[in-house]
Amino acid sequence: MAKLDGKTALITGAAAGLGEGIAEVYAKYGANICMVDLDPSVEETAERIRGLYPDARIITQVANVADRAQMDAAAARTVEEFGTIDVACANAGVCRLAPFEEMTDETRDFHIDVNIKGAWNTCKAVIPAMLKAGKGAIVIASSVTGDIVADAGEAAYAMSKAALVGLTKCLAVEYADRHIRVNCSQLGYARTPMVEKMALESNPDNPEEAINDIAVGVPMKRLAKPTEVGELFAFLGSDEASYITGEQVVIDGGSTLPETMSMGTN
């Protein structure tokens, strides 16, 4: 039996990147899935995953995580289709770079709306179904950025991702005795459209060089694959993680470990 057989998962930001990787892994492990994204191409992504796993039960919902009513509707449709929501993967996120003195309030608020309110709205939408079922698991996509490390130009992103650690810990405590576990991932870099856009903003003349430079700073010498992040989300959403809650799980290929890149015997 696959470890997510019979479980129903709602996954946000599922049209591409990490969300696509999470959905693919959840399908591999037998979950019923509602793939949520603002981009209508989420249905094309779902069709690709159905091709890999023909037995997968997947629905899609076009919704903006920043809109509470739209997330409530996505959760309601998931329950209508599958009967409950066992796992929520609050993955949708954005990152736009700018020097702090040039960063507009609109850019700041964009990060707050999608990264913070998006996770908040997702949790608000799914927790009633979990309370009714008497159990559930939520996995929130935070980041090493903000809570552990940061780069110049990431003030809004770092602030928003660090806030998700606080949300994770509070919800974990609040719902522990009601059998809802809440954990967050703290990813370094994966090869996703968002990271490729950040690379273009960092080095417009040669964005691939920016990505290669990231890999140089990672002890494993590469970026994560979205499906590798999906495996972490699958574990945290499964019964195998039944005694884990309120945790920040770093998945970064060791990138936050080195003190410097120039000292040592290697």
Rank of each mutant, 00 (worst) to 15 (best):
N212D: 15
K221H: 12
R178F: 08
A176L: 03
I214P: 02
G166N: 10
I180T: 09
V126P: 07
I138T: 09
A210E: 08
M130E: 02
K225M: 13
N203I: 01
I148R: 14
K221F: 02
Y175N: 11
K132V: 12
K117F: 13
A215T: 04
E201R: 01
G166I: 08
G136M: 12
Y175H: 14
V126F: 07
F233S: 07
V114Y: 02
Y157T: 06
S160I: 04
E231M: 07
R222C: 11
V126G: 04
N115T: 02
K132R: 15
Y157A: 07
K169E: 14
G136Y: 12
S202W: 01
T192Y: 00
C170T: 14
L164A: 02
A155Q: 01
M220A: 13
E154G: 01
A172L: 09
V195L: 13
A152R: 12
D113H: 09
I127C: 05
L236E: 06
V114W: 02
K221P: 04
T145R: 09
M159I: 06
A133S: 15
A162V: 11
K117S: 04
L171C: 01
V114E: 03
I116Q: 07
S142G: 14
S202C: 05
K135A: 15
M194C: 06
Y189W: 14
A125V: 07
K221E: 13
L167H: 01
R222V: 07
G188W: 01
N183A: 08
V195C: 05
P193N: 09
W120T: 03
I127M: 12
Y189T: 11
I211W: 09
E228H: 11
